[in-house]
Design a protein around this nucleic acid. Structure first.
Length: 883
RNA sequence: GUGGGGGUGCCGGAGCGGUCAAACGGGCAGGACUUAAGAUCCUGUGGCUUAGUGCCUUCGCGAGUUCGAAUCUCGUCCCCCACACCA
């Protein structure tokens, strides 16, 4: 039977027998393995996807065999722009496009042999799912976490919709790397993710995630502790006309403030200049700045521009009067949108001050040097001692910072504050293929939430694609009655960001068919949280933040009782094509699993993918490389065809137990590549006759990687299906016999030596092989060393110990060997066999060697070193003479 | 610029203080089998040597710690990835 047929056979059997279907079982420990669910793209999946899912499948199978009740589901993130765009292009309705794509995905995934519980499948574009998006939206609203606000928002001209901050990468749309995001003033729906900023940050400590993802999230949340300072704004005559606040983390530099800058978006900029001679210039400046793209405006190191506002403020610490400016380097949506400037101790302020010739005042200086403002080329940002700072002079700046904040708070000039870079989540989208936001706009009552009983708000099928938001083109959808007053009203036509869908899907798997509630709390309590999550790093600051946020909110409104959705996270590497670039349809370097499966079998492909490299690293597909795995699989098939079931040797038992130990550890730690090597090694040592147990264990160890052929062979050696449900082998430490393995290694060395001797003297045919095992005393010597080695591996100590022993009789030899030992200390073997053991091992393997070399073997032992032609210094090797 | 990860033989990639001239795979070379090819199996694959011992040079480059470094420390160069005027 060919490999392809075997795959089909077992995939069918698994499916028919519902092997991977699970339900809650309080007697069994659960384990939840989850891969980030895919967006079902029309182009189907390639080997890169196969690699992802294989990583999870191996883990799920491993845990299942280890007795866990394993939840391993699959679903589809099926709302989203690509479907809508593809639909527009090809003239198909997004729904049809998506459903077709999903059907194709399922077919492909099944043929990879993935052990999903398909009965739990979900698709986010179905009303059965998105109903609960709407439900949660309303719950969030009740909790006060949803609001509508006009704001400057990110707009992608290609997507024709607004985007959340997380979806803007380097000023460009996350879907269109070539499209600059524009800023538009629009009224939009937001979710208060910022309310959970602190917890999102703190709880990173609780979870077992790759450090780099945690770092990325920490940076994204961007906590900084500082103080908000309030300044009196005065006009040219010195009369107080207003106040302005700034945020700073460097309260220690307040005596060095020489001016203050506002962001161009700051409303005070217009307010203060209105009707003054500065108005024109300021307006012109704002216009010019707003024209620029985000990148142009915010890239670090860009030249800074600004305009004087004609107003001043008083620095309460010094009483100084300083000018107010507007500048393009100040971010409106961070802190207060205004910055106190200390040119001598902030590089940006320094550059700005130099350019516009603003005053500078040094307030911190290194201990051994006096800084002078006019001599500086850069701002001084290191630690130092305060000067020119009134009563704080001479204080270390870190200490001064605390004291100054105290003073500011006491005097009412400022307040200790924490700010975050994290912004609220903008969730409304002006596109069709998403969850309708369940809101009705009534001219009388205003914004009215759709009552729970009216959910779901169905996404209408008939809309016109093209200009603007397609939902507005369906009058039947838009026109409705106000649930409060019953008058004519209109529906919200914005849909939700699809990241809303993916923020809770992992909960729905626990109870995917529930139509009364989003999920049964008891079921979720049993299965959740996810024990092992698997996915790429690209979601570090998007999905992985939203999902964590969602979890915390659901906990607070009483749906769940845990804090973090994903206890452990594994980031797999990216699969690259033969050309070295990331495998993708657009690159044209994709390898299709079905093609490989036909030629080599999918087990071969799976084994190849995981043996290439550690799965957390990027790897490169190679058409040649897979041949090696193919050979291995074929060898296994052939071996099982011919193997005699009988008894296994002690040596094999030892190896087997060691292999169990190692492979188990390797899989546990996602070191699949090392597991594959160990399996190969072990397989190579199998003999023509082995015990059933040995063979079974080997198949079990191989099963997570190659599920199909192992099922087949499992059956072939007389077992009932399914190996998928068999229990993982346990190793017996006492059966691991290092000595037996050392013997094996010894024989292997002898074999290699015979080969090299044969090569060197270029003997084609050998009649006789004489193996002379070294003199006895050396073994005595090594026995001693061995004893010492048990105590220490430190060479110096070994030597010390050796001096104490009574090896005087062999003083000469020792004097030769010991320096050698010291020089090549790496040559100290871990296990030293005795002469007797070696001879015994040789005798046992005599027949095998004779057969291989087709020669007679003579084994000799000797007490005399002379006979060995003197030079030999490594007594751990026998001498070999060929005839 | 900041943070994270890397640089290993012809190639992919293990190893992360001693059994390291470096796992495992690929490639290449030689041999066995075969009429031949393929498949399969065996051997070799840094250099010099050579009755197997041994010696030299190698894990980006330079220095150091150690009896001993691919592995630890410092410096340096290069590559990748993320963040990017966050006050």
């Amino acid at each position: 039977m060919n490999l392809h047929a075997i795959e089909k056979k077992w995939q069918k059997k698994w499916s028919e027998s519902n092997v991977f279907k699970v339900k809650e079982d309080s007697k069994k420990k659960k384990y939840y393995v989850l891969e980030m669910f895919p967006y079902p793209s029309g182009s189907g999946l390639h080997m890169g996807h196969a690699f992802n899912y294989t990583i999870g499948d191996i883990y799920a199978r491993f845990k299942r065999m280890n007795g866990f009740n394993v939840l391993y589901p699959m679903g589809y993130d099926s709302f989203g722009l690509p479907a809508e765009n593809a639909a527009i292009k090809a003239g198909i309705h997004p729904k049809d496009y998506t459903n077709k794509a999903i059907a194709n995905f399922i077919k492909q995934q099944k043929s990879l042999g993935l052990s999903y519980d398909w009965s739990r499948m979900i698709s986010t574009c179905t009303p059965e799912y998105y109903k609960w998006n709407q439900y949660f939206f309303l719950k969030f609203m009740e909790k006060g976490l949803v609001y509508r606000k006009e704001a400057s928002v990110n707009w992608c001209p290609k997507c024709k919709t607004v985007l959340a901050n997380e979806q803007v990468h380097n000023g460009k749309c996350w879907r269109h790397k070539d499209t600059e995001v524009e800023q538009k003033e629009l009224e939009q729906w937001f979710i208060k993710t910022t309310e959970y900023a602190e917890e999102l940050l703190e709880d990173l400590e609780k979870i077992d995630w790759p450090e780099r993802i945690k770092v990325m999230q920490r940076n994204w949340i961007g906590k900084s502790e500082g103080v908000i300072l309030k300044f009196d704004v005065i006009n040219e005559k010195g009369e107080k006309i207003d106040e302005i606040s700034t945020f700073t983390t460097r309260a220690d530099t307040v005596y060095g403030i020489t001016y203050l800058v506002l962001a161009v978006e700051h409303p005070k900029v217009i307010e203060w200049t209105k009707g003054t001679k500065y108005e024109m210039k300021v307006k012109e400046f704002i216009k010019k700045v707003k024209k620029k793209s985000i990148i142009e405006r915010t890239a670090e190191g860009k030249e800074k521009n600004g305009v004087f506002l004609g107003k001043y403020f008083i620095n309460p610490f010094t009483g100084d009067k300083c000018p107010l400016w507007v500048a393009d380097y100040v971010l409106y949506d961070y802190g207060t949108g205004a910055v106190m400037a200390v040119p001598t101790h902030d590089e940006r302020d320094f550059q700005f001050a130099k350019k516009y010739d603003l005053p500078m005042k040094v307030v911190i200086t290194p201990k051994n040097k006096k800084l002078k403002a006019h001599e500086m080329n850069h701002a001084y940002v290191e630690k130092g001692i305060l000067i020119n700072s009134g009563k704080f002079d001479g204080m270390e700046n870190e200490e001064a910072k605390e004291k100054i904040i105290e003073l500011a708070e006491k005097k009412g000039w400022g307040k200790k504050t924490i700010t975050y870079k994290l912004k609220d989540w903008l969730i409304s989208r002006q596109r069709y293929w998403g969850t309708p936001i369940p809101i009705i706009k009534c001219p009388e009552c205003g914004i009215v939430p759709v009552p729970y009983k009216d959910l779901p708000v169905m996404l209408p099928h008939n809309v016109k694609f093209g200009e603007g938001n397609p939902l507005t083109t369906n009058k039947k959808f838009v026109k409705t009655k106000c649930p409060k007053c019953g008058r004519d009203a209109e529906r919200e036509t914005d849909t939700m960001d699809t990241f809303f869908d993916s923020s809770w899907y992992y909960l729905r798997y626990a109870d995917n068919k529930n139509d009364k509630e989003p999920f049964d709390k008891k079921k979720v309590k049993y299965w959740l949280p996810v024990d092992q999550y698997i996915g790429g790093a690209e979601h570090a600051c998007m999905h992985l933040i939203y999902a964590r946020f969602f979890t915390k909110v659901l906990r607070d409104i009483g749906f769940i009782d845990f804090d973090e959705p994903f206890k452990k996270l594994f980031n797999q590497g990216m699969l690259h094509g033969d050309d070295g670039a990331v495998m993708s349809k657009s690159r044209g370097n994709v390898v299709l699993p079905e093609v490989i499966s036909k030629k080599y079998g999918i087990d071969t492909a799976r084994f190849f993918l995981i043996s290439l490299a550690s799965p957390d690293k990027d790897l490169r597909w190679s058409d040649e490389g897979i041949e090696g795995s193919y050979r291995f699989i074929k060898k296994i098939m052939k071996y099982f065809k011919n193997v005699k079931i009988g008894k296994s040797s002690k040596k094999i038992e030892s190896k087997l137990n060691k292999t169990i130990k190692l492979v188990t550890e390797y899989i546990q730690e996602f070191k699949y590549n090392l597991a594959s090597i160990r399996l190969r090694e072990f397989f190579d040592s199998l003999k023509e006759e082995e015990s059933k147990e040995t063979l079974e264990t080997f198949l079990k160890l191989l099963h997570p990687f190659c599920p199909h052929i192992t099922e087949e062979l499992w059956e072939k050696i007389g077992n009932k299906p399914f190996i998928s449900l068999a229990s993982w082998p346990q190793y017996d430490e006492s059966k691991i016999d290092e000595k037996a393995e050392a013997c094996d290694e010894f024989i292997e060395n002898v074999r290699k030596d015979i080969h090299s001797v044969k090569n060197i003297i270029k003997l084609k045919k050998i009649n006789e092989i004489k193996i002379i095992v070294a003199p006895k005393w050396k073994y005595v010597f090594f026995e001693k060393i061995k004893k010492i080695l048990e105590k220490t591996r430190n060479v110096r100590e070994i030597l010390k110990e050796l001096m104490k022993t009574e090896l005087k009789t062999h003083g000469k030899e020792i004097s030769k060997i010991v320096p050698n030992l010291v020089k090549n200390n790496n040559k100290i073997p871990k296990i030293i066999l005795s002469q007797k053991t070696e001879v015994q091992a040789l005798k046992e393997n005599k027949e095998m060697l004779e057969k291989e070399f087709n020669a007679k073997i003579i084994i000799e032992t000797t007490e005399e070193s002379k006979e060995l032609k003197a030079k030999q210094s490594n007594p751990n090797k026998p001498s070999i003479i060929l005839k």
